[in-house]
Amino acid sequence: KSCSILVTDANFECNEENIMLQAMDNSHIALVSVEIGAPGFTSYRCDRTMPLGVDLTSLTKVLRCAKDENICTLKAADEADVLNLVYDAKSAFFSPFFFAFMWHGRDASSPFPPFFLLCSALLPLFIHLNISLSSQTPITSSWPETKYDTRVTLPSAEFTRIVRDLSQLGEHVRIEVSKEVVRISKLKAKSSAEDEDNDSIPTGVVIEMNQHVSLTFSLKYLVNFSKSGSLSGEVQLLMSNDVPLLVAYDFTQGYIRCYLAPKIGD
């Protein structure tokens, strides 16, 4: 869901060890990289390395049908052109989705026809949804390992709050890191002469730095990145001057890393 805000379609590269996704947005400003290791799944099997080209907008719509307690199984057969999603309801209760289906058009004076009786028995167990797989060209180009001058670790909820609040006030933000202070300043759209500083030193911030860094970014993208905040309690901002910002959310069996090109010039 976080990725679908940035990119509309992408390839999930599946192998025995993990599922990975890398995709760049159409404007070439942001790049997202996701990895979920096999141990992160209740069960995982990949008989053959294969890319699953998925329309993320459609996938997000389908995922909205799931409730938090649903177990989602993703399956793609060899040579298949669909990704099959199965939601297995853990509870015995019907989800609202089932209700909508079962009660639609029912004549209250007549008993359920056999078809609906069959559905009532099966639907609580599974919903099957298919998504067509596209043959999108995978992004195979990788970038060099970057040595960053600074790393700031802070609670992801604080980062989400800061960028969301600042996005109400301006389009861009300047992030400056010195030895003891991280300053996240709103920039006015037309002039940076009257920057309005925002208190940006929440509890639990760790700063590691070799060199003072000052970079300017589009807030819109940072807000989109921050949607991944629910995946991890902490977020890391890795920066060097004149190098893309890396916003990293690591979780137990994987990560989502977002790269953002800085603004250049004053």
């Binding site: 400003i29 942001a30 589009s218 893309p244 790269y259 090109a261 603004k263 250049i264 010039g265």
Partner: peptide, 13 residues
């Protein structure tokens, strides 16, 4: 301000 281009940057790397 102009915008840094990621695709170009990584291509040059």
């Amino acid at each position: 301000m102009s915008q840094f281009n990621l695709k170009q940057y990584y291509a040059e790397q």
